[in-house]
C-alpha cells in the first residue's frame, strides 16, 4: 500500500508546471476570449507539450507515444486547469489518443506530433468544441472520426468566452467508424475533467488567499477576518479531499479496477463541488473587484461553471453512485 506519486510523475508534472508558468499567463486566456470566433493560431504551447510527450502520453511506445497511464497524466491535467488552459488537452490527450491508438488509426501520428488536435462528442452532449482539427464523435455506441471542417456547425456562445462550441449536424458514415470502448473513454474523460477542475479550484483559492492578504478594510487585511478565514478553510477542505479521490480514480482506470466507473463518478462530484465552492467563496471574499470582467478571476470562475457540468453534473454522478449502492 502506498498512496503517493512516483518521482517520475512528480518531475514530469513540475516540468509541465514550469512551462505553463512561463508560457501561459492570464493574458493568454484573455486573448482566447478576445478572438471568440477563430481557432487559436498560436500553437507554440501545444507544440511544446507534444514535444515533451504530453499529448501522446497514453499511446503505446510502439506508436510514438509514451505508453503511460491515466495517473501519469493526472498531475499534468491539474496544472492545465491551474492556468485555465484553453487547448483541448482533456479531449485530445486523455480521450482521443487512446481511442485512435487502439483502433490503429492513421491520424494518431499527427495528433501525437501536435499537428492535429481532436475534440470529443458523446451522443448525449448537446454541444461540442469545434476549435480542433478533428472530431471524435460517438454515435449509437460507435466512434467516428470526422474532420471538423466537414460537419455542419451552428455556433453556440458559452459563458466562458474562450470556449468555441457548436451544435453539429453530421451523418455518420461507415468509412469513418472506429472500434473502441465508449464507456472506458467516458470514464477517462470524466476523471481527466475532474483533474482540471481540481487545478482550477486550487488557482481560485491561491488567488483569493493572495488578494485577502493585501486588501485592507477597517485598518487590517480582510483575510484577518474570521468570516473570510472560515470560508477559505472550507474551500481548502473541499479541494484537499477531492484531489486524492481524482488520483485514486485515475489509478483505478490504469489497474482495470471493476469499480473504476464508480470511482470516476465520485471524483467528478468531489472535484466539481470543490471547484464551485472555490468560485463562490473566491468571488465573495474578493468582493466587487471580482464581479467585473476587467479582473482576471472571472475567466477561471466561468471555466469552472462550464466544466463542472461537462460529462455529467454532480447530481448525475451521485446518481450513478447511488445506483451502485442499490439505494
Amino acid at each position: 500500500m502506498r498512496f503517493a506519486f512516483t518521482e517520475d510523475q512528480l518531475l514530469f508534472t513540475s516540468a509541465v508546471a514550469d512551462l505553463l508558468a512561463d508560457k501561459y499567463p492570464a493574458e493568454r486566456v484573455r486573448a482566447a476570449w478576445d478572438t471568440p470566433t477563430e481557432a487559436p493560431d498560436d500553437r507554440s504551447v501545444w507544440q511544446q507539450l507534444a514535444d515533451m510527450g504530453v499529448v501522446g502520453l497514453l499511446a503505446p511506445e510502439s506508436t510514438g507515444g509514451m505508453g503511460l497511464g491515466a495517473l501519469d497524466l493526472h498531475g499534468l491535467l491539474v496544472e492545465s486547469g491551474r492556468v485555465a488552459m484553453t487547448e483541448p488537452i482533456v479531449e485530445t490527450a486523455a480521450v482521443a489518443v487512446p481511442v485512435l491508438a487502439a483502433a490503429g488509426h492513421s491520424a494518431l501520428a499527427s495528433v501525437i506530433a501536435g499537428e492535429q488536435t481532436v475534440a470529443v462528442g458523446f451522443a448525449d452532449d448537446p454541444v461540442v468544441r469545434v476549435d480542433t482539427d478533428l472530431l471524435l464523435l460517438e454515435h449509437g455506441g460507435t466512434w467516428y472520426l470526422a474532420e471538423t471542417a466537414a460537419v455542419t456547425a451552428t455556433p453556440q456562445t458559452s459563458v466562458d468566452g474562450s470556449r468555441r462550441l457548436a451544435s453539429i449536424e453530421w451523418t455518420p458514415t461507415p468509412g469513418h467508424a472506429l472500434p473502441g470502448d465508449i464507456a472506458a473513454a467516458r470514464d477517462r474523460a470524466i476523471v481527466a475533467q475532474s483533474a482540471q477542475l481540481v487545478g482550477l479550484a486550487r488557482h481560485l483559492l491561491d488567488e483569493t488567499v493572495a488578494y485577502v492578504q493585501v486588501r485592507e478594510q477597517f485598518g487590517k487585511p480582510v483575510g484577518a477576518q474570521q468570516a473570510i478565514k472560515h470560508k477559505l478553510a472550507d474551500v481548502l477542505l473541499a479541494v484537499d479531499y477531492a484531489g486524492p479521490m481524482v488520483a485514486r480514480a485515475a489509478h483505478s482506470i490504469d489497474e482495470g479496477d471493476p469499480d473504476a466507473s464508480v470511482h470516476a463518478s465520485m471524483a467528478k462530484c468531489s472535484a466539481a463541488d470543490a471547484a464551485k465552492l472555490a468560485v463562490r467563496h473566491g468571488l465573495q471574499s474578493h468582493g466587487a473587484i471580482a464581479y467585473t470582467v476587467e479582473y482576471d478571476l472571472h475567466m477561471w470562475m466561468k471555466r469552472v461553471w462550464a466544466l463542472a457540468a461537462q460529462w455529467g453534473t454532480s447530481a448525475e454522478h451521485r446518481d450513478r453512485v447511488r445506483q451502485h449502492l442499490g439505494l
Binding site: 500500500m1 502506498r2 498512496f3 503517493a4 484537499d240 479531499y241 477531492a242 486524492p244 479521490m245 485514486r248 465520485m266 462530484c269 468531489s270 447530481a315 451521485r318 446518481d319 453512485v321 447511488r322 449502492l325 439505494l327
Partner: peptide, 28 residues
C-alpha cells in the same frame, strides 16, 4: 434521503482515501 446517503458514502470514501495519503506521508 437516497442522495444524502450516497453523499455520506462518498464522504467516507474520501476520508478513507485521504487517510491512505496521510499515512504514506507519515511513513515517508
Amino acid at each position: 434521503i437516497a442522495d444524502a446517503i450516497t453523499q455520506a458514502w462518498i464522504d467516507a470514501q474520501a476520508y478513507q482515501v485521504s487517510t491512505l495519503r496521510t499515512v504514506t506521508k507519515m511513513l515517508d
